[in-house]
Design a protein around this nucleic acid. Sequence first.
DNA 1: GATAAAGTTTACGTAAACGTAAAGTAAATT
DNA 2: AATTTACTTTACGTTTACGTAAACTTTATC
Lengths: 142, 142
Amino acid sequence: MAEKTTYSISELAKEFDVTTRSVRFYEDQGLLKPARRGQTRIFSSKDRVRLKLILRGKRMGFSLAETKELFDLWDETLTGNEKQLLKMLTILDNKRAQLEQQKNDIAQAEMEMDTAEARCREALADLQERKEKQQTSEQAGA
Amino acid sequence: MAEKTTYSISELAKEFDVTTRSVRFYEDQGLLKPARRGQTRIFSSKDRVRLKLILRGKRMGFSLAETKELFDLWDETLTGNEKQLLKMLTILDNKRAQLEQQKNDIAQAEMEMDTAEARCREALADLQERKEKQQTSEQAGA
DNA sequence: GATAAAGTTTACGTAAACGTAAAGTAAATT
DNA sequence: AATTTACTTTACGTTTACGTAAACTTTATC
């Protein structure tokens, strides 16, 4: 049961629910580097992983340029250059700080959504009460 | 010690580290509704809160349009219309789902950053070893 | 062999979120 | 009175992340 190793552009597009245009654009920007058979793009499972990372990055508010920077840096670490490795470590630190900020933001947002929901439910309950009162007063009047 | 209740555009810009251009743009898009003294904008603490929410939203990857939608909906809930209240509740649910997705994304990213950092540190350790070996061999050769 | 289906390049168009002058007003300072 | 300082509006420019159309090739199907 080996993992599938190559993908067509439309296979990837369908799997991740993006347009082929987007995939080609990501290649154009240097985020994907599919092989070619003639003109046709052939995506590897590495490309697939990168696409997944691109999209997650987008959901997290990262620009394509930011994501590309990470990809490039990561590739450079494979050369083992000490300077690059250290740079990668500090960048990882920065990203961690960003994630902390995002977690805080999310926690705040969740709290505010809790109080917002509570207020909505109260307002709805009030409306219900009024409805019932109106019904009883109608009964009394009948 | 009452909270300050009004702010100039540059006060807000400085506090939140955005340009006055951005603040004016947010007003233009209907996200802020400062009062005026003559032509000059006078921002209330409500405006200040909204600006804070706008920026948090941006950090979380929300567009201005999305944030505006939330603002508008929230304002509408104050009228107490039942339909609006129910709509608000379902939208809150959707946003919660989004936040869950983001939390998953963040958790995934953190894990991958852990392994990335580990690989960096290993590579650095390898480099250190080689350096030391070279030094000892130099000593032996001398 | 025609024709559809999936792929390609090239290129212009667009929405979002501002940046960046340009030109003017209004109040405070020298 | 002149100038600095903080505002204002108007409006064109820019970047990002694609959409969309045109014109073409390659492969599969009838």
